[in-house]
Design a protein around this nucleic acid. Sequence first.
DNA 1: TAGATGTATATTGTATACAATTAGAAGCTA
DNA 2: TAGCTTCTAATTGTATACAATATACATCTA
Lengths: 216, 216
Amino acid sequence: MDSGLPVKRTIADQVAELVRQRILTGELKGGQPIRQEHLAAELGVSRIPLREALKQLAAEGFVTITSHKGAVVAELSIQEVEELFDIRLKLETWLLQLAIPAMTERDLAALEKNVEEQRRPDILPRWGDVNWRFHEIMYLPANRPITLKLLKNIHDKIDRYLRLEVTMRSGFVRALREHDGLIAFCRSRDIPTAVALLERHIRDTARGLIASLKVQ
Amino acid sequence: MDSGLPVKRTIADQVAELVRQRILTGELKGGQPIRQEHLAAELGVSRIPLREALKQLAAEGFVTITSHKGAVVAELSIQEVEELFDIRLKLETWLLQLAIPAMTERDLAALEKNVEEQRRPDILPRWGDVNWRFHEIMYLPANRPITLKLLKNIHDKIDRYLRLEVTMRSGFVRALREHDGLIAFCRSRDIPTAVALLERHIRDTARGLIASLKVQ
DNA sequence: TAGATGTATATTGTATACAATTAGAAGCTA
DNA sequence: TAGCTTCTAATTGTATACAATATACATCTA
């Protein structure tokens, strides 16, 4: 029996998660250098576990390490954001196709509960997480854990920018409507329509974000 | 001007590459534990850079680290191999579609030169690399660097098993023939046929590998 | 004897100390 | 003053030393 979480978490792992969170929330901004001694002192640890955490985050694509210069919070170019959305498009539509025939009433109920949570007034600060959770529940019945993990990583990288987006509120309202639609088509097992809607959903999100990035 | 490679490589980076190579070549076998002190001594370095290398390899999926138990070389289940091939199928066919219209004569010549190298009698030990290089050249004109990097990682994980495959020689002959076909259809800009052939190529490889894995 | 409990040893995790490298300022030269 | 060298401080990279944890074996208890 395994709880799924590491029984005893090492300092390096805790630091990795904390720094990742700071990057995702924007507390650590893109391009910002990470001074090891400073951050280690702030967290009350030595540089060794911090360095291990940074190596991991570098492999995950959240920071960029240059020898003898240190780590900086990774930034995405517009082209890279577009590419990540393209990957999402290809893999998520595929997963949805696989998932719909395998969905149970329990899954659909979980989706509805998730959308309900998204309608709560205080959702905005943690909308990124809840929104990903919606997609995750939807793709879970496809039983493709590696793909799902990969997509979560992509979501995380993108969400950092979505969070900053001025037009998030409008995109947010649209997303809610589309989520309702997705649930309906999943319930009626209408794969082509559901996939088409998901495709539009992802493309719309991409368009909105990229437009706002280009303005700046 | 940048050569693309790190100007001054750190010990941790060198160790990461070396251990990755040992895993890919099968010198370090799946499930095998990695003793830090032992390996560090063998390489003539301290455990610190080795540990950083292992953290990176863990994030890349080549080893699994458990707190206070250490790192073991990751193993793939049959289901996971199948999933990786599925991802290849979705992303590589997409990249090929994008790449064909952008291919130059120079690209096609590089593909032919690569196939020529694959025909040399002493190719077997480094066939994995050369084979991936073929795919890479083919997808490069699509200009999707993130996707390409992701696919290289998947190739690396799969190649470790392909290398061991008893039937590699037969799969090898088939691959050569299919590579010729791919070049021909790329040259004639016949996207549907090229994509169909690539799809068959990947499916055949998957089928062969999974069959041999199930036997054992 | 089966099971629990304590203990020793091996191994990993982290802190401290030191070496290597970089970036920037100061000084020099034409 | 522009361009070059030299030096210094800041920062990263690595080794060593020590602390924490796990594993295996021995010991005890019922």
